[in-house]
C-alpha cells in the first residue's frame, strides 16, 4: 500500500511538471510582448519596465523558468501585479467560500444522484428510468448560470425565501450561511447530479446482471439488501471514479456560480484577474486547481480498497 502511494505520487510529478511548463509557456508563447499584453494598451514605458522586472522578463527564458519553478517549490506563487499582495495569500483569503460551495455541492449531488441512479437501474425501462435519464440529459445541457438565474428569479425575487446573492461564513451562524449557500449549491449540483446518476445507473445495470445478484435474490434476500449490499457496493468504483474526473467540471462550475451569486471566492478572484490581466494570479489558480485535481484523483484511487477489498495495492 505504502509503496503504491509513493509510486502514485511519483507518477504525479511529471504531470504537474507538464502543467508547470504549460502555465509558464502560456504567457511566453503568446505573440507580442508579455509585458505589453499584461499592461494593456495605455501602459507607459515605466509601467512596462516595472512589469518586466517583476516577472523577470529581461532574463533568458531558461533562467526565467528555473527561477519561477524554484520559487514555486518554496510555495511562492508570485505577487499580484495589481494589488502587490502575494498570490498565495490572495488565494488563501478567498478559499473558504469556494471550498464550502464545492463540498456542499459534492455532498448534495451524491445524496441525490446515487439513489436516483440505483432507482433508474432497478426500474430499468419504466417511466421512472426515463424521467431520471431525461433529467440527466437536461442537467448536461442547461448552463449553470441559466439554472442559477432561474433559481434566483423564483426563490429570491418572486418568493423572497432567501437573499438574492452573497456569502456568509458558517462561523457566523448556520442560518445566514445556509440561506445564501442553498441556491448556488443547488444550481451547481444539477450537472454533477446528472453526471453521477448516469454513471450509477450504467454501473448498476452491469452489476445487476451478475450471477451473485441472482444468487442473492434466489436465497430470498430482500430487494433493498440486494440492491444496496450486493449490487451498489460492487457498482461503486466507477461512480467514485467519475466524481474524481468530474472535479475539473466542479472547479469550472464554481467559477461561474460565484459570478452569478456574487460569492467572493477563488472563482471570482480568477475572473477579476483575467479582466485585469493579473497574470501571476491566473497562473497560481491554474497550478492550484490542477494540483488539487491530481490529489483528489489520487485519494479516489486509494479509496477503491474501501469499496472493493479485492483491490489491493
Amino acid at each position: 500500500m505504502l509503496g503504491y502511494i509513493i509510486r502514485r505520487i511519483l507518477a504525479a510529478v511529471p504531470v504537474m511538471g507538464c502543467v508547470a511548463v504549460f502555465v509558464f509557456l502560456l504567457l511566453r508563447l503568446t505573440p507580442g510582448d508579455p509585458a505589453a499584453i499584461i499592461a494593456g494598451d495605455s501602459a507607459t514605458p515605466e509601467q512596462l519596465e516595472r512589469i518586466r522586472a517583476t516577472l523577470g522578463l529581461n532574463e533568458p527564458i531558461y533562467v526565467q523558468f528555473a527561477t519561477w519553478v524554484g520559487r514555486l517549490l518554496h510555495g511562492d506563487l508570485g505577487v499580484s501585479l495589481i494589488s502587490q499582495i502575494p498570490v498565495a495569500q490572495m488565494i488563501g483569503q478567498r478559499l473558504e467560500p469556494s471550498l464550502t460551495l464545492a463540498i456542499s455541492t459534492i455532498l448534495l449531488s451524491v445524496v441525490v444522484a446515487v439513489p436516483l441512479g440505483v432507482l433508474a437501474a432497478w426500474k430499468q425501462g419504466t417511466w421512472i428510468d426515463r424521467v431520471v435519464m431525461a433529467f440527466c440529459v437536461l442537467g448536461f445541457s442547461v448552463p449553470v448560470f441559466v439554472v442559477g438565474y432561474v433559481l434566483i428569479q423564483v426563490f429570491a425575487i418572486d418568493l423572497k425565501w432567501v437573499p438574492v446573492q452573497g456569502f456568509r461564513s458558517i462561523t457566523r451562524g448556520f442560518g445566514p450561511f445556509f440561506e445564501r449557500a442553498v441556491l448556488p449549491t443547488v444550481a451547481l449540483s444539477f450537472i454533477y447530479i446528472a453526471l453521477i446518476a448516469r454513471m450509477t445507473r450504467a454501473s448498476m445495470l452491469e452489476v445487476l446482471g451478475e450471477d451473485y445478484v441472482r444468487t442473492a435474490r434466489a436465497k430470498g434476500l430482500g430487494e433493498t439488501k440486494v440492491l444496496l449490499r450486493h449490487a451498489l457496493r460492487n457498482a461503486a468504483v466507477p461512480v467514485v471514479t467519475v466524481i474524481g474526473t468530474g472535479f475539473t467540471l466542479l472547479i469550472s462550475g464554481v467559477v461561474v456560480t460565484e459570478s452569478v451569486f456574487n460569492i467572493p471566492g477563488i472563482g471570482r478572484l480568477t475572473v477579476d484577474a483575467v479582466l485585469a490581466r493579473d497574470f501571476p494570479v491566473i497562473q497560481g489558480m491554474i497550478l492550484l486547481t490542477s494540483g488539487l485535481y491530481v490529489a483528489v484523483n489520487l485519494l479516489i484511487d486509494l479509496s477503491y480498497t474501501l469499496f472493493d477489498p479485492r483491490i489491493r495495492y
Partner: peptide
C-alpha cells in the same frame, strides 16, 4: 488536469 474554463479564460485573456 487543468479545469477547462480556467485554461480557456487564460488563453483568451492573453490572445
Amino acid at each position: 488536469a487543468i479545469p477547462s474554463i480556467l485554461l480557456a479564460i487564460a488563453v483568451v485573456a492573453l490572445s
